[in-house]
Computed example of a mutant assay.
Amino acid sequence: MNQTIVERAKSFIYNHGRLLDRRRFEYFFEGGSKEAVISALQAYQNHDGGFGNALEPDIRCPHSQPVATEVALLVMDEMGCFDRDIIRGIVCYLKKITVSTGGFPIALRELNEYPHAPWWTVKSDPLANINPTGQIMGLLLKQNEVTDFYEEEWFQQTLQYLWDYVDREEPSGYHDGVQWISFLEHAPDRQRAEAILATKVDKWLSRQDTIERNPAAKGYVHKVLDWASSRECYAAKFISEEEFKQHLSHLVEQQQEDGGWPMSWQEVSLGAALEWRGGITVERLKTLKSYGVL
């Protein structure tokens, strides 16, 4: 059965997935190389150093966007391979889009001119947002290929923006929470970060309404295996073995007849939906492998 799951998923990914996700599948399941994944990722990087070109499939804009740049960092992180040239380009881009208070906007106006999901529409001047600032900064702090920008004014301002934010606010929602966790796991002041994790994040994750515990819950919800796609994820300690067992069983059952896994939100277009599903399918296989199901 386990081999059948992988073979069906492989068929879907090779029929419908992007080159990037085919390369990711090859790396995790067929002995492919990190270099091939990074090469596919580079095609999404623009001359300004940022990433666009629908790397985030709900934003069809070719121009660089903060969230697409965050996705690029996440891909390099999953490979354990932060490419020096890509990072230098990202640093140049982030320096340009840092707002005066420090921090990065969630999206820029250029995307309004292209197809995009309605929740990405930019209606006002860009303001700093914890999403995607927290995760971008967390991953920049995690990587050690390029570190000479850590003392630059834009980076220090953004670091201060994040400290001020987590001191002042409380986590709220999945997309907000992962930003908190990524930043605080890699923040340089470990004593301060651990204190905020313990007093704010852990308390919030312990609430029954933060992590969706029902494996059959419908709609745009974030379940146990979204929060803890592997046992190494921070949120895993708030999930019981029985809950993991239930959600892993349900995840296997969710594989569609075409071999891929479904989206849980409104699609922008058929093409965008297939791009999303290819990436999601690789993620689901990685999770099943991580927990020993595959």
Rank of each mutant, 00 (worst) to 15 (best):
His186Lys: 04
His186Val: 03
His186Gln: 15
Ala187Thr: 02
Ala187Trp: 02
Ala187Ser: 09
Ala187Val: 09
Ala187Gly: 04
Pro188Tyr: 07
Pro188Gln: 09
Asp189Arg: 01
Asp189Ile: 00
Asp189Pro: 06
Arg190Gln: 10
Arg190Met: 01
Arg190His: 12
Arg190Thr: 00
Arg190Phe: 05
Arg190Asn: 08
Arg190Ile: 02
Arg190Pro: 04
Gln191Asp: 15
Gln191Arg: 15
Gln191His: 10
Gln191Val: 13
Arg192Ser: 04
Arg192Glu: 07
Arg192Phe: 04
Arg192Tyr: 03
Arg192Lys: 15
Arg192Pro: 00
Ala193Arg: 01
Ala193Glu: 01
Ala193Phe: 06
Ala193Leu: 04
Ala193Thr: 03
Ala193Lys: 01
Ala193Ile: 11
Ala193Tyr: 01
Ala193Cys: 03
Ala193Gly: 00
Glu194Thr: 09
Glu194Ile: 00
Glu194Asp: 15
Ala195Met: 07
Ala195Tyr: 03
Ala195Cys: 10
Ala195Ser: 15
Ala195Pro: 01
Ala195Asp: 05
Ala195His: 11
Ile196Phe: 10
Ile196Val: 15
Ile196Leu: 15
Ile196Trp: 10
Ile196His: 05
Ile196Met: 09
Ile196Arg: 04
Leu197Glu: 03
Leu197Gln: 07
Leu197Phe: 08
Leu197Asp: 01
Leu197Arg: 03
Ala198Pro: 00
Ala198Asn: 07
Ala198Met: 10
Thr199Cys: 12
Thr199Ala: 12
Thr199Arg: 15
Thr199Phe: 13
Thr199Gln: 15
Thr199Ser: 15
Thr199Val: 08
Thr199Trp: 08
Thr199His: 12
Lys200Arg: 10
Lys200Met: 06
Lys200Gln: 05
Lys200Phe: 10
Val201Ala: 06
Val201Pro: 11
Val201Asn: 06
Val201Phe: 11
Val201Gly: 11
Val201Met: 11
Val201Ile: 15
Val201Tyr: 10
Asp202Thr: 07
Asp202Tyr: 04
Asp202Trp: 02
Lys203Trp: 09
Lys203Pro: 00
Lys203Ala: 10
Lys203Arg: 13
Lys203Val: 13
Lys203Glu: 10
Lys203Asp: 03
Lys203His: 07
Trp204Pro: 00
Trp204Ile: 00
Trp204His: 15
Trp204Met: 06
Leu205Ser: 05
Leu205Thr: 07
Leu205Gln: 07
Leu205Tyr: 07
Leu205Pro: 07
Leu205Val: 05
Ser206Tyr: 05
Ser206Lys: 14
Arg207Gly: 02
Arg207Ser: 13
Arg207Tyr: 05
Arg207Pro: 00
Arg207Trp: 03
Gln208Thr: 04
Gln208Phe: 11
Gln208Ser: 08
Gln208Arg: 14
Asp209Ser: 10
Asp209Trp: 09
Asp209Ala: 13
Asp209His: 10
Asp209Tyr: 10
Asp209Phe: 12
Thr210Ser: 15
Thr210Cys: 09
Thr210Pro: 14
Thr210Arg: 14
Thr210Asp: 04
Ile211Thr: 04
Ile211Cys: 08
Ile211Glu: 06
Ile211Arg: 08
Ile211Met: 09
Ile211Lys: 04
Ile211Gln: 05
Glu212Pro: 02
Glu212Ala: 12
Glu212Trp: 02
Glu212Ile: 14
Glu212His: 06
Arg213Pro: 11
Arg213Asn: 06
Arg213Ala: 11
Arg213Phe: 13
Asn214Phe: 01
Asn214His: 00
Asn214Pro: 05
Asn214Cys: 14
Asn214Val: 04
Asn214Gly: 05
Asn214Glu: 13
Pro215Met: 02
Pro215Phe: 07
Pro215Gln: 01
Pro215Leu: 02
Pro215Ile: 02
Pro215His: 03
Pro215Lys: 03
